[in-house]
Write a protein that binds this DNA or RNA. Structure first.
Length: 891
RNA sequence: GCGGGCGUGGUGGAAUGGUAGACACACAGGACUUAAAAUCCUGAGGACGCAAGUCCGUGCGAGUUCGACUCUCGCCGCCCGCACCA
């Protein structure tokens, strides 16, 4: 060990200042950031012999300032990136900007500034803030989605998608956000309100571009199983969102139709073919084609449909609406008994865009159908009888029975289980014919619908197509890309400035040279973020991707972001990657191998006497526990302490990261974000917590400078030291090293932090026990422990650790240092402490050699005083010895 | 309504079925200081006890086990997702 004791270190210690100076985070952080930048430390190349590792945090929207959520997200990603780098991987850790979107347009309207100008200024500001966090990012790969050099490739890929039949245009009823004047995807409608504006969403008919994500429903669903390094929660959410159901699509013959109707049958979909004998009505959606046809000659139906639509302007109202229906007078014939005629209703609760827009109602076993049947006094015949009930007496009250049971009142299905009944009914329907076709077929349906991507906005990627009166809708030739947004826009009219632009949309058709118009819609910004991870692999390439680069880097090994993207962004990206594979832009289908969703950053909320929200800086907190009080500083009045909630501007409970970076430095902020709370859970931001983190920064610095001080006072011929004491320190050092590595690999940052605290405590106690006079072998262990400690905190507090590394006499950069290796023989301890229980209660403990035989452990345990007392003379029935763990004596 | 998750000191939290409360924050007492800050030391789940120690204790109630924060079942509470998807 003495040989490890470098001359350089000795020299350093005698020449450097050894004092109690406080660590100056501001100076040191700036210094190291510059050092890394000048040395291109985090620049990464695509050709390397090293194994690759791609760490990605969800890129930010350039709002202008980073928030605490970013600090947490990027601190976590940076730990992984720096750690993997030290482990010898070629690490890709890029950053970019999700730069298109509505806030830029809103700012443009409010502040009379161009969206581009606003966005690029924000990017500059935020880049500066992120850089001050000391992230190990390869900034040379930065991209901004609003830049033509980014979106021109997106346009090229769209044209490829179009050619491959992955995109199409159709008129459809869309979710219209009346505040933002734009269309929203189903996923963007939350509780009937726009995800961004919060306005009640209306239904409108518009011609829109769609991506055929629904063609991939099965694949997207099935492949979820293989995403083992994704949180179960996210996989489940996607599974539910895709919503597969297996059932039967079948036709019912119609009778008693008005003369104006040609149809003789109607298609409907069910997952409960076993309950067909319990059917008491059929119903179609107000939007069903048959409803429209019937309405043409029937004022009552017209009125009813209009009523449904009026209600339907808000999905929220629709959900709460009472079930209503209108009997058309038409009869649907039961497929297993055409003497049974079921009334056909138009009903407000039947959805047009699921299944066929038509159902049969079995009130006994479906709550919606039951509600409807009770209202319109229709039959309720139970056909599934629970095991403990008698088929002759079982009746349905106000609750439909949806549990298990045996079929009854169902002729050839009687006695079967639900599953067998479904099968037999389906087979029967398949064997029957109606109008020369099989009357039914098994069919799988999905809740997932195609992705509508047209937006009526200016600040987005222009959809690269033109509309020619002669030639129709044509993609813009790739050689003409990018279709750039016009710089000059006016905002004198509401809606999309592209549509109102005096010249931009007027073009000559490249096919017929006639007059044509550009598409004035732009893409949903979720497209921008559906492939940025691929662009980072070769961000300046002339094509959207370079196959060599994407095949080397993808998939992303560790993706980190908020749970709020569990469905939208992650599902779109999975689809987009498949579409890119089909069109030859990538060689794989799943972009994210490992996914981690971090929790939110929360803070207490405060309200003034008058009920206004107060920011944390406006209140003074005192007391503790039940005596905790908040006082509004300005008025001196008592303020109410509210719930701890996600930081938000509206509740004014935000903490600006730049204040924290300024006051305490990046390392303190990073450390605090990583300690205490498990990363997937919410973390509560507290002033005390930050101060605690900062104290640790100072304490580490002191520890390292103290080491240098010990160096000067060490005694070479000291009194004998207990070698056990040195071994104990070395054991702690190497055990901590192993544990922290495991914790970082598993993203358990809070536990890594706890282990680091423990080692720090151990080192401090060790050093203190020598009273400033340390013998040389002890100093070696001390120094080793400190070096390991500094390397362990390297990924978390990169600036402090560089500075400490330097103070330890190293001339290398810690960022270039390989991760230390734990010495195996120190990890296995020779003697262990086993707990001894009597009847499952701990009574004593026993220190034995690891190799001690079971029998010996048993006899030693039985001799312990506390154990004898606990046994209290009772006969010992059994002794359980779990090697290296525990002894349990049963009396 | 359906699906999922969580419930451990004053607080954040730790614990492959094997010594519950590691580590941190807050708190209290002490040392240093003219004083404060900073720092260092000590204490602490609850009850009883001078102490050794004993009993109780991981939302509640059962169960499996030599042994349960951990597994099973039933409740209660909180959080999240989906929601007329037939």
């Amino acid at each position: 060990m003495n040989t490890k004791f470098g001359r350089k270190f000795l020299e350093y210690c005698t020449t450097s200042m050894i004092n109690n100076e406080r660590y100056n985070a501001r100076e040191c952080e700036a210094k190291w950031q510059k050092t890394w930048q000048d040395a291109n430390t985090f620049r990464v190349e695509n050709d390397s012999d090293k194994e690759k590792y791609y760490v990605l945090e969800m890129f930010p929207y350039p709002s202008g300032r980073i928030h605490m959520g970013h600090v947490r997200n990027y601190a976590m990603g940076d730990v992984v990136a720096r750690y993997k780098r030290a482990k010898g991987f070629n690490v890709l850790h890029p950053m970019g900007w999700d730069a298109f979107g509505m806030p830029a347009e809103n700012a443009a309207i409010e502040n009379d500034v161009h969206p581009a100008e606003w966005t690029y200024a924000n990017i500059d500001a935020m880049r500066g803030q992120l850089k001050s966090m000391g992230l190990s990012i390869d900034w040379s790969r930065e991209v901004a989605t609003c830049h033509p050099e980014y979106y021109r490739h997106q346009q090229a890929m769209f044209i490829d998608f179009l050619d491959a039949g992955l995109a199409y245009r159709k008129e459809s009823k869309v979710n219209w956000d009346p505040v933002d004047h734009t269309v929203l995807a189903n996923e963007q409608v939350i509780d009937g309100k726009g995800w961004r504006s919060g306005a009640l969403v209306e239904q409108r008919e518009l011609v829109q571009w769609f991506f055929k994500i629904s063609d991939f429903s099965e694949d997207l669903l099935e492949t979820l199983e293989t995403l083992e390094r994704w949180p179960d929660k996210v996989r489940l959410m996607q599974r539910n969102w895709i919503g597969r159901s297996q059932g039967v699509q079948m036709s019912f013959a119609l009778r008693n139709l008005p003369d104006t109707i040609d149809e003789t049958s109607i298609e409907l979909y069910t997952t409960r073919a076993d309950t067909l004998f319990g059917a008491s009505f059929c119903a179609i959606s107000p939007d069903h084609p048959l409803s429209s046809k019937l309405a043409e000659h029937n004022a009552e139906i017209q009125q009813f449909i209009a009523d449904c639509h009026r209600l339907g302007t808000s999905q929220e109202a629709l959900e709460k609406a009472e079930k209503r229906g209108l009997d058309t007078g038409i009869k649907a014939l039961h497929p297993f008994d055409d003497s049974v005629e079921l009334p056909l209703y138009i009903a407000n609760f039947v959805l047009m865009d699921y299944g066929t827009g038509a159902i049969f109602g079995c009130p006994a076993h479906d709550q919606r159908d039951l509600d409807f049947a009770r209202k319109y006094k229709l039959n309720v015949t139970p056909v599934v009888i629970p095991a403990e009930e008698d088929p002759d007496t079982f009746t349905i009250g106000t609750q439909a029975y949806i549990g298990e049971g045996r079929l009854a009142n169902s002729r050839f299905l009687n006695g079967l289980t639900i599953e067998d009944g479904k099968l037999k009914a389906a087979e029967k329907l398949e064997s029957q014919t109606l109008d020369g076709k099989p009357q039914g077929a098994r069919k799988t349906n999905y809740r997932l619908r195609d992705w509508g991507v047209s937006r009526q906005r200016y600040w987005g990627c222009p959809i690269p197509v033109i509309h020619c009166k002669t030639c129709g809708t044509l993609p813009v030739p790739k050689s003409d890309l990018p279709v750039k947004l016009p710089d000059e826009i006016t905002r004198d009219k509401p809606g999309n400035p592209l549509a109102h632009h005096p010249t931009w949309k007027f073009v000559t058709c490249h096919k017929c040279n006639g007059p044509a118009e550009r598409e004035t819609d732009t893409f949903d910004t979720f497209i921008d973020s559906s492939w940025y991870f691929a662009r980072f692999c070769s961000p300046r390439a002339d094509t959207p991707t370079e196959l060599d680069a994407v095949n080397y880097w993808l998939p992303v090994d560790q993706y980190i972001g908020g749970i709020e993207h569990a469905i939208l962004h992650l599902l779109y990206s999975r689809f987009f990657t498949r579409a890119m594979k089909i069109t030859g832009h990538v060689g794989l289908e799943e972009p994210f191998e490992g996914l981690f969703t971090q929790g939110m950053v929360t803070h207490e909320t405060y309200r003034s006497n008058g009920g206004n929200w107060l920011s944390p800086s406006e209140v003074q907190i005192s007391g503790d526990g039940d005596n905790r009080r908040a006082v509004e500083i300005a008025s001196g009045d008592v303020a109410a302490i509210g719930n701890t909630e996600k930081m938000s501007k509206s509740k004014r409970n935000t903490i600006d990261p730049s204040d924290i970076l300024e006051d305490y430095g990046a390392d303190t902020a990073r450390w605090f974000m990583l300690s205490d709370s498990p990363p997937e859970r919410d973390v509560i931001w507290t002033e005390a917590g930050v101060e605690g983190a900062h104290r640790f920064v100072q304490r580490l610095w002191r520890l390292i400078t103290d080491l240098a001080a010990s160096q000067q006072t060490f005694v070479s011929t000291a009194e004998k030291i207990d070698p056990e004491k040195i071994l104990a320190l070395r054991t702690s050092t190497h055990k901590t090293l192993a544990a922290v590595g495991n914790d970082i690999e598993g993203l358990r940052f809070n536990r890594a932090v706890a282990h680091i605290y423990e080692l720090t405590n151990t080192i401090s106690a060790f050093a203190a026990s020598f009273g400033g006079k340390m013998e040389v072998s002890a100093l070696g262990a001390y120094k080793e422990a400190c070096e390991v400690l500094i390397q362990l905190i390297g990924p978390m507090m990169p600036h402090l650790s560089e500075e400490c590394w330097r103070a330890l006499g190293k001339s290398t950069m810690l960022a270039d240092q390989p991760w230390p290796q734990a010495e195996e023989e120190l990890l296995v301890e020779d003697s262990i402490v086993m707990a001894v229980q009597v009847n499952g209660k701990r009574r004593d403990e026993l220190s034995v050699k690891k190799s001690t035989a079971k029998e010996e452990v048993e006899s030693l345990a039985l001799k312990l005083d506390n154990v004898i007392r606990a046994i209290d003379g009772k006969p010992v029935r059994r002794v359980i010895v779990v090697p290296q763990r525990i002894v349990n004596i049963v009396v």
